Computed example of a mutant assay.
Amino acid sequence: MDLLKLSPEEREKALAAIRSQKHPIYDGCMLPKFPPLMANAEKHMEAIRNFDSKESDILLCTYAKAGTHWVHEITSMILQGEAKYATGHKINAMLENADLDKLKDMPSIRFINTHLPLRLIPKKHVENGYKIIHVSRNPKDVMVSFYNHAKNDPVTGGSDDFPGTWSDFIHDMCENRHNFYDGVVKYELAWEKAEKAKTVTNVHSVFYEDLKKHPVAEITRLAAFLDKDLSSETIQGIADKCSFKNLADATTSGKKGEDILPLLSKDKTNFIFRKGTTGDWKNWFTVAQNEMFDEMLEREFKGSDLKYTYEL
């Protein structure tokens, strides 16, 4: 069903029907209500695991709301060698949502993205050491951004009781009740463990906060990983065009192509871009919630070397 071809009334009726359904589950992991997953989650997820990766493929791996669109745009500019906005929608090359047969026919370099946990991404890509870009963000800002995204997502809600109120959400996330994409803690710990054990290699790690603080240096580092020798002027141009304000404006103004999200979202805005800041969690977490979340992080990250920046 192409929701965009429906009248506003028909579209809302169709969205309400999807909203009333439960999120798909695979291997204990709650997943988004993307059409291929709603149709047959097991079939689509097995097809992802067995996807025929190529050596030239680049896979962008992030937990939800860790800076996916931002790094996707930066990487797209690096690959084309100029500070020019990419057209089309990232979601079309997102493993969970994509028509995998169409992805197979994409010309090289295939730039693919996913929020799936490490254990669920294409086996061939991992085993052969093909390029991976892994983006991380401090878990507190991830929680705030994820909550606001989920509240505005046109198909969340209904029988899953997700995301509920902010209080419900943060308690559920501390307990990992929904296990959405495995939960941010399990997601990041799996990457750390695999990199230490060298069961995943050729990974370029990017921290959201480092990219905000030192965009030119981080873009230069990413370009080197992608074997792209770009001039300082091009690097600066990419940094400028991919600032939060400029990228959000380009998306909502149509410079990157038609912005379809306002036609679908609950408040008729593009809910992908909200603030793009570090430290907004302080405006959401109560003292008690922050203490509860800190206790969870201390418990779950015990023995881990992962360190996050919570304010700039």
Rank of each mutant, 00 (worst) to 15 (best):
S145E: 07
S265E: 00
T309Q: 13
I133M: 01
K65I: 06
T75C: 12
L120I: 14
D2P: 00
M77K: 08
D294R: 02
T165V: 07
M45W: 04
D153A: 09
D259E: 11
S159F: 03
F271N: 05
K307D: 15
R299K: 13
D182W: 00
R137L: 12
F34T: 00
W281C: 08
K124F: 14
M106S: 09
I170G: 07
M143D: 05
D172K: 03
G303A: 13
P24T: 07
F244V: 05
S205C: 14
K228Q: 15
H72Y: 15
A250G: 14
D161L: 10
D160N: 14
A250Q: 05
K213W: 11
G157Q: 08
S243H: 01
V135M: 07
K307S: 13
T199C: 12
V216Q: 14
D27E: 14
L230N: 10
V142Q: 08
A83C: 05
E127A: 13
V216M: 08
G237P: 09
L6M: 11
N97D: 13
T278F: 01
L222V: 10
D57S: 09
N290R: 09
D160A: 11
H171V: 06
I109N: 10
K90Y: 14
G276H: 01
T87P: 11
L37Q: 11
D229C: 01
Y310E: 04
I109E: 08
D57R: 11
M30K: 11
P122H: 07
F271L: 00
P117L: 06
C61P: 03
F146A: 05
H149E: 00
K275M: 07
Y63N: 08
P24H: 10
F51L: 06
V200A: 12
N40S: 14
D305I: 05
I272E: 04
K22N: 10
D57Q: 11
V135F: 02
I133A: 14
A39H: 15
A93L: 01
I238Q: 07
P36G: 06
K193E: 15
I133C: 05
I25L: 15
G158A: 04
G279I: 12
R49H: 14
K241A: 05
D249V: 06
P154V: 01
E188H: 07
L261D: 09
